[in-house]
Each structure stands twice: as structure tokens, then as C-alpha cells.
């Protein structure tokens, strides 16, 4: 469903690449976590899938199509096949729950009757039955994120990208959200979720792809947040640090890394 072939993304010629020769394939119907520190390239990965950015080299295939070959006027069609969920929900504050979800259908020209039928169905899927007429500020964070998920999947995309969807939520609420994402995945949607939340990753036991400094350092099925093979991680980390002419910039620690582009998806 999503295939990266030797993908490198350089934002700034002087800095290290945000993604460095990434090879990755995520199959149809798969559920994959994308983990790694801030600046490790998770958001860049998602941006490349959406064709928000163009890969510096290599090829990104989405649903079998090389996104570099999609002309700009057909990019909307690509994006209709991809739902996106963010940490900050991004709901329209002056529209109620129903209108927020309906908005995604209106703007691509779906008829009123289809919208009337589909939206309640999707709201039921995410567990928001009977809350159609609430305004976003009357909802809890978890409920707002469910609205955002409903909006992302209402057009039945084949792929759902989630960029730290539980980042603003407490652990219990987060598990609820994960349940929704899992249900959507069960219905056949490919889900790629970038996250920092180790509890969730450990709980879900799905495929985990770990990025560090733009390099895939781990790709395990049904894995945990932290690698069960620390030696590989250690050696890679050591090699990375030694391979840098500028030692400070290559600090592989999990602390905040300044001037790392690619976080504003």
C-alpha cells in the first residue's frame, strides 16, 4: 500500500537528511507504528506519503502509484485516498460534530443525501452516537479526537495516517482511541501511526518501525516500543555518532533536538 524505495529527503543542504535512504513497505490492511525521537523523520515520512513534500531522491509509492508522477491537479485525488489525524484534532470550532465530519464530504462534492446517510454511520463507528449536535468545545479531548478520526475516514480512504493522535490524551482515553483505530484497521484500512506513546505500542503489539536521524533502525512485527534487541540499536547508535563530523548534531539521545525540520505536518 505504501512503499518507500531508497527515499532520501533533504530540507537543508547543510543539515543531515530528514530521511536517509529509507526502504520500507507497508502492506494493504496492515497496522504499523512509526516510533522515534522528535526529528527522527516520522513526520517527514507522513508528508511524503501525502505529497506535501517531494522526496529528494528515491521513489514513494502509494497504492501502487509513484507519487512523483502524480500531476499537481491530481494530488487531491491521492489525498482522498488517505485520511489524516493529528495530535491537535484540528476541528472547525464553529461547526458542530455532524458539520465537521460532513465538511470533508461537502468539499469533494458529495450529495446531501449521501452525507446524511454516511455521517451518522461513521460517528457510530467511532463511538459518538447521539453527539451529532455538540460543538467541539463541549467535547472532551478524546471525543474531539474521535470526531477528527470520523472526519478522516468518512470518505473511506484506503490509508489512515495518524500523527501522534494520542499525544494530548490521558492513557485511558488513549486506549479508547486505539480501539477506534484498531476497529478501522479491522475494516481493511491500512493504518500508519507515528507516536511517542510506549504504553500504547506495548499494549497493541503491532508492527513497529523505529526511525533515528532519518534512518530505519528497527522494523519488527508485533513488537514493543523499545527494542528487544538492544545490541543492534546500540551498535547502530554508536556508528551514527562516530560517523558524524559534528558530534553535537548527531547526539542520538532522546532529548529535544533543536533545528530539526519536518515537524510541522
Amino acid at each position: 500500500m505504501i512503499r518507500f524505495e531508497n527515499v532520501t529527503k533533504v530540507y537543508d543542504q547543510k543539515a543531515r537528511p530528514a530521511l536517509d535512504s529509507v526502504n520500507l513497505e507497508i502492506d494493504r490492511g496492515e497496522f504499523a507504528f512509526l516510533v522515534g525521537a522528535s526529528g527522527s523523520g516520522k513526520s517527514t515520512f507522513l508528508r511524503l506519503v501525502l505529497k506535501e513534500d517531494r522526496a529528494t531522491s528515491g521513489a514513494v509509492y502509494v497504492a501502487g502509484q509513484n507519487v512523483a508522477n502524480i500531476s499537481s491537479w491530481r494530488v487531491p485525488r491521492l489525498r482522498r485516498g488517505i485520511g489524516v489525524v493529528f495530535q491537535d484534532f484540528r476541528l472547525l470550532p464553529q461547526k458542530n460534530v455532524f458539520a465537521n465530519v460532513a465538511f470533508a464530504m461537502q468539499v469533494i462534492g458529495k450529495s446531501r443525501s449521501i452525507i446524511r446517510d454516511t455521517v451518522p454511520e461513521v460517528l457510530k463507528t467511532v463511538g459518538l452516537e447521539g453527539k451529532e449536535h455538540r460543538m467541539p468545545h463541549e467535547l472532551s479531548g478524546g471525543e474531539q479526537q474521535r470526531v477528527a478520526i470520523a472526519r478522516a475516514v468518512v470518505n473511506r480512504p484506503g490509508i489512515l495516517l495518524a500523527d501522534e493522535p494520542t499525544g494530548n490524551l490521558d492513557p485511558t482515553t488513549s486506549m479508547g482511541i486505539m480501539g477506534v483505530l484498531d476497529k478501522i484497521n479491522q475494516n481493511g484500512t491500512t493504518v500508519v501511526m507515528a507516536t511517542h506513546d510506549d504504553d500504547i505500542v506495548n499494549e497493541m503489539r503491532k508492527r513497529v518501525v523505529e526511525l533515528r536521524n532519518g534512518i530505519v533502525i528497527r522494523d519488527e512485527a508485533r513488537a514493543l516500543y523499545t527494542s528487544m534487541m538492544p545490541v543492534v540499536g546500540q551498535s547502530r547508535r554508536f556508528k551514527d555518532a562516530s560517523g558524524r563530523p559534528d558530534g553535537s548534531a548527531a547526539d542520538p539521545g532522546d532529548g529535544p533536538v533543536s533545528s530539526q525540520p519536518g515537524e510541522e505536518l
Binding site: 487531491p76 472547525l92 469533494i108
Partner: peptide, 17 residues
């Protein structure tokens, strides 16, 4: 910009935006 950002993400055409 909030609305147009969402329109972009859900694949609204350039014309509609």
C-alpha cells in the same frame, strides 16, 4: 486557513478551495 487546511487534506480540488 483552518478550513482550507482541512480541505486540502481531505482532497478538495483546487477550484473548490
Amino acid at each position: 486557513r483552518r478550513e482550507t487546511g482541512i480541505m486540502r487534506l481531505v482532497g478538495a480540488s483546487k477550484t473548490v478551495i
